[in-house]
Nucleic acid binder design. Structure first.
Lengths: 140, 140
DNA sequence: CCGGTCTTTTGAATAACTAAAAAAAACGAT
DNA sequence: ATCGTTTTTTTTAGTTATTCAAAAGACCGG
């Protein structure tokens, strides 16, 4: 049978292997996940896999454009499936929890620096820093 | 003699040691520098130092607020002396060169996500990705 | 000058990732 | 369905940036 994930992989020119499907499924169920957690999830379905394979698969899927890789300062690389929109992220300075932030209001100014020192701007990436709900409660 | 850097350090509650002054001087002369390059620069003045000491000093100066640490995806942590203004950075996707970007026009919208999922926003960090002048030339 | 505190040095460990070669699996054609 | 080629995964090593901890050293108030 040809599942939705299979054809997504093939559409990107990649073979639909068990490992890749398992990684995509893992990322569908958990947002903003690091390689280690993906590995643990995949291991339950595919016990023969290794952390290196997961790194390999994540890199392949990232260059194929099927997943997005983010690297907030202070934590390992995280991967997510939402790639269709250019949304941003907010990171809790206390516990490192990550939230999605839909495109900020007045997004146009954000994408155009007033002066870029001769650089050509392709994309802009915004990371917000703050406190997640539970750390706000813990703080008071 | 009490230099400007000495009093900056003391003002932050830190002792003005040779290592710390040398690190600050190195960062004054080079923008966006990683620990390795700082170490090499400091070594010329202070040959007994070690890369670990430099990491240690950089961490101290960062928490004291005398320098700023940035971690663009794909490169090691970089440090810079410009801390007074909330400027942003542009990274060359080809060679990793970094440029400063003064605060974008219409900065207010950038700092206020339309919805943050219960997070409290403290700061916003913008990273632009593009091509530096010399990689633009190399590309055509 | 002395004792306590702050820094640096030294040595070791860690985490995350990359590289390379061999084994295994997927795909397309027969 | 099966074969052979190509792609992918596994296994094994190795790198790099960084952190941790203990001992040695430097600084400063009294």
């Amino acid at each position: 049978m040809e599942t939705e994930l299979d054809s997504a992989l093939r559409g990107a020119g990649l073979r639909a292997t068990a490992g890749r499907v398992a990684v995509l499924e893992a990322l569908d169920s958990m947002a903003h996940t690091d390689a280690e957690r993906v590995f643990r999830a995949v291991s339950e379905v595919l016990p023969t896999t290794s952390i290196q394979s997961v790194h390999n698969i994540l890199a392949d899927l990232t260059t194929a454009g099927l997943i997005r890789r983010i690297e907030p300062a202070g934590s390992a690389a995280l991967y997510e499936r939402r790639i269709d929109d250019n949304h941003h992220h907010i990171v809790c300075t206390q516990c490192g929890a990550i939230g999605d932030v839909d495109c900020v209001v007045g997004e146009a100014p954000c994408l155009t620096p007033s002066s870029a020192g001769g650089f050509t701007v392709q994309t802009a990436e915004v990371t917000f820093w703050g406190l997640c709900p539970s750390c706000q409660n813990a703080a008071q």
